[in-house]
Each structure stands twice: as C-alpha cells, then as structure tokens.
Design a protein around this nucleic acid. Structure first.
Length: 484
RNA sequence: GCCCCCAUCGUCUAGCGGCCUAGGACACCGGCCUUUCAAGCCGGCGGCACGGAUUCGAAUUCCGUUGGGGGCACCA
C-alpha cells in the first residue's frame, strides 16, 4: 500500500487538508504501507517555499511523518512537481503521438466566452473541441510560428464509473467532462495531469482525498488508463463544513492548523478531533494516535459532510490535557506564562488547573488572575470587615511558613487555620472566602492551597496586610502596596 | 444554469428489515460534590426531512420531492 498527501504550497495547512493528510497517514500506518509527501507546486506563480516548510512543520507538529518526501528523499523522488516537468512532457508527448491528446490554440478570452454562453444557455460548460479537428500541417505551422498552444486530453466517449471505497460506484456522465488541459501553453503540466503521471510513477495504490475532487477523479481515471498504468483505488471523504454549513474557511475564524497551535490546543486533541469528524468510532472517543491507527478503516469514513464543532474540540483538548503526565503539563503551562514568572508559582498554577483547563492558550489569563489580581471592588472589601480576626490568624500562619509553599504544605497550613476556626465556631465559608478575596481580589478562582502555593510569602503577607488596613479604615485601601 | 455527492437529536455519530419505546458523545438544562468558579459524578431535554413503493414488518431497500454541500479554470 502506498498513499500520498500532495499539498500545494499556496497557503498554510487548513484543517480540512490536515484531515485528508491524517486519513492518508492512518491508512498507511494501519496497513503497514508507506506515506509519501509530494509538493504539488506546478502553480509556479503562487507557490512559496516558506509556505511549503510551514506546511511540513504543521504536519510534523500533528505527528504525521512520512517515509518519502522532499526533505527525507526516497526512491520515487524528486518530490517536488516542478522538478518533474520532464516526466510530464514525455508523457504528454506519448499521448500526443497516440492521438489521445491534441494541441489547443484557443486563447483564454474565447474559452471564457464559451463558458459564459454555455451557462446562459443552460448547457454544461465544456470546451467545444474547435482545435481537435486541426490538420497536422496547420498545427505544425502555427507551432513553428511560435503561437502558444496548450495540450488537451481527448476525453473518450461514455460515462466514467469510479469505484469509491467510501461511497461505492459513482457514475460521472461523459458529456459533463470537458477535455482537460494537461500541459499549459507555458509548457508546465496542469494539476490533473501531473497528479496522474506522479501517482503512476510513484506507485500510489490508494488515492484518499476530499469529495470535491470527484469530477477530477473521473478525468484522472481516464488519464491513468490512457497512460497505460494501473488505476489506483479511490476514496473520497466528505468535506469539513463551518458552523453556517458552508465549506470551512478563513471567514469562519480559525481554520488553519497553525491557528489552533497558537490558540494553545494540543496536537493530539486536534488529531483526535479530526479523525472523529466524519468517521464512525466505538463508544470511546478519547483516542491517541496508536488507537486511531489500530482502528482506522477507510470503509468506516462517512460519506456525508461534517460540521466543525469547536466545543467538542475543546472537550477533547481538555481530556488530553488531563491525560498528560504532570511534568509535561507543567512544562506546557509554564511556557505560556510571562517571562520571569517564578517557577514555584508556575508549578502551583499548573497543578491547580490540570483538571479543568480547556486549552493552554487560557493559561496566561488564569495565572494573571492570581499573580496580578485586581484590587477587590468596594463591596468585596466590605466583606472583609468582619473578618479581621481570621485574616490576622492566617497572616500569622503564613509568616511562620517558608517563602514558598508546596500545594501540600499550603494544604497543611489551611488545615491548621481551619481547625483554629472550628474551635472558635467560625464556619468554613467565613474562614476561607475572606482569605480568597484578600489574596485574589475576587470570589472565584482556583482552590486556595494552589493560590497560597503560587504566591511568595512576601506577596501573600502584603496582600493580607492591605486587606487588614482597608479593614481597619472601614474603607477600601487607598495605597496599592506591593502587588508584584 | 448543468453535473456529482450527501441526508438519524443543535453538532459528531451508532444503526446495515424485526433486538429501536432509535443507543453514545459534545453542547444545553437540573442535581450532587465543594470556601468559590471550574472540573468531576448523576439525571434530564432532544432526532430517523417529506411523499410514494416493496414487505407480514422499514431509520434501515427502491423511486420522487425538498434541503444542504461540492464541482463546472491554461488553480490545486
């Protein structure tokens, strides 16, 4: 089994394309076949080397690696189409010689006009084959005169039946297929032809791509046959749609793999989500790459389009975060925090949020709420008024403890504080809520042990003092004090 | 306009003629847990697009309608 993913470096890696790459990858891994990366850069004007490396970086980031490709080489290279132009010219020459292809001198304006007329007349838009009947002599003469000419494939009569592994036989009416241009007038092969010549030369056995290629596949199947090669097996998966039901694109917001990386999603979550989008799985949904490989089958892919649902991606990301080893989670959390965040603080906050974090992109905001909290609003400061005794006690405890507390140490401190409060008959809420407000300026936030562990002793004491000052004055504090 | 593909809860899906009073997951709503918010746990709401046909029996097969998507380039 040999499959390929063939992006054109004219844009970044879209999640829809990433899904195609993933399905090819999973198929190769599941069957023990080979995954080939080929760069379809015959559109020389729009292709960009920087985009090409960005695409490869995104694929690797997702964990999709290839046995053969432009950077790793392989027996079927080169893996850039622009380095394979000679192959295409040779193949086109063969088709020309055998009468399966012909030169076309029609200027684009004429083709454009033809298209418009067909549309208005309610007919399928197809080339009228004006140049098919040109006498060989005339073709030679015009060529010799330097007139630009493209090469068209002469589509044979009759319907084309594609045997699709996902949707069964698909019949494309022959009269819907226009003679495709296989070599442009600038001498560079077009997509449909280069793809077929390469798939043949590279021994591709299964072509897995989006169903937007279905009509291309009809042409390409004919081309495979014309070139005398084996026709690969085809599988056309469905498209990814945006929330509004249209093809997912930039206008829906984040649609590139890189967007999601920057937003702080885990690659394994994206892979998991993309795999699930449009394929039938068992009751289990949180799956890592090994499971996906083990359970992937082309036949299980759904033929119907799937809407990209961000909340479900969020949930999967959350699941994969919880599955991470603590050290890795801490590392990922900490690297999102501002430079200079004290390591004990970063560790405590990471620990605080491993069970509830949705994506790492949220880390800075969550950390800031503890490390650089807002001043409590007047009504919360007022809530501290009756709590002077508690705040004084917890200040004493904190002052006696080390500069940095571990979450476990903080838990012990709080246990001591709570048993003190219990003896005085103070309820848990009256004990802990004033402390939370004094420390974070808010009623909501992570569990208190982590808050205490995230704050240096000096900072914690300063905040408690501030609360006590405001308390004594019966008013919100006027001096902000040390809030670092 | 022409051609192709698709059609089960809001979303992703299970279902491949009787096991379906249609199952699961996300989202949503409620409860529990809890110093708080989350998370977690438990429960609830919610769907076979419509019309014919085949059959003892249809979510499942066939036809049509409607709806959605895609393609119709000297882009890929």
């Amino acid at each position: 089994m040999r499959v390929r993913f063939a992006p054109s470096p004219t844009g970044t890696l879209h999640v829809g394309s990433a899904r195609t790459a993933l399905y090819n990858y999973l198929f190769a891994r599941h069957t023990g076949g080979r995954f080939v990366l080929r760069i379809d850069d015959t559109d020389t004007a729009r292709s960009d080397a920087a985009l090409e490396s960005a695409i490869m970086a995104d694929l690797r980031w997702l964990g999709l690696d290839w046995e053969e490709g432009p950077d790793v080489g392989g027996p079927s290279g080169p893996y850039h189409q622009k380095e394979r132009l000679k192959l295409y010219r040779g193949a086109a020459g063969e088709l020309l010689d055998s009468g399966l292809a012909y030169r076309c001198f029609c200027p684009e304006e004429r083709l454009e006009k033809l298209r418009r007329e067909a549309l208005v007349g309610g007919r399928p838009a197809r080339y009228d084959r004006r140049c098919l009947g040109l006498a060989p002599d005339e073709v030679r003469r015009r060529l010799a005169a330097g007139e630009p000419a493209a090469i068209r494939f002469k589509v044979p009569e009759g319907d084309v039946v594609i045997i699709d592994l996902i949707r069964g036989p698909v019949t494309i009416g022959g009269d819907a297929l226009s003679d495709p241009i296989i070599v442009r007038s600038d001498g560079v092969a077009g997509y449909n032809f280069a793809t077929v010549a390469d798939d043949l030369a590279m021994g591709i056995t299964h072509v897995i791509r989006g169903d937007d290629h279905l009509t291309n596949t009809a042409r390409q199947q004919l081309l495979f046959e014309a070139l005398g090669g084996p026709v690969p097996q085809f599988a056309h998966h469905s498209m990814v749609l945006g929330p509004d039901g249209g093809k997912l694109s930039k206008r829906h917001g984040a649609s590139a793999v890189g967007d999601y990386r920057e937003l702080g999603y885990l690659p394994q979550a994206i892979v998991n989500y993309l795999a699930l989008l449009g394929w039938s799985h068992g009751e289990e949904e949180v799956l890592g790459m090994p499971r996906l490989i083990a359970e992937f089958e082309l036949e299980k892919l759904s033929p119907s389009p799937a809407v990209f649902d961000l909340p479900k991606l969020d949930w999967l990301d959350h699941e994969h975060i919880m599955a991470l080893a603590l050290e890795e989670h801490e590392r990922r959390f900490a690297e999102r925090l501002p430079l200079g965040t004290p390591p004990p603080a970063a560790a405590a906050l990471a620990a605080a949020y491993q069970s509830s974090l949705v994506r790492y992109g949220a880390a800075p905001e969550l950390a800031a709420a503890v490390l650089e909290p807002p001043l409590p609003p007047p009504e919360l400061s007022a809530a501290l008024l009756p709590a002077a005794e508690q705040l004084t006690r917890v200040r004493e405890l904190r002052a006696e403890a080390p500069e940095w507390l571990t979450p476990a140490g903080a838990r012990e401190l709080l246990a001591a504080y709570r048993s003190w409060g219990k003896e005085l008959g103070i309820g848990a809420r009256d004990l802990l809520m004033p402390l939370r407000i004094a420390l974070t300026g808010a009623e909501h936030g992570p569990e208190l042990p982590f808050v205490l562990a995230a704050l240096h002793r000096g900072v914690a004491l300063a905040r408690l003092d501030l609360a006590l000052i405001g308390n004594r004055a019966g008013e919100p504090p006027t001096t902000p004090g040390d809030r670092s």
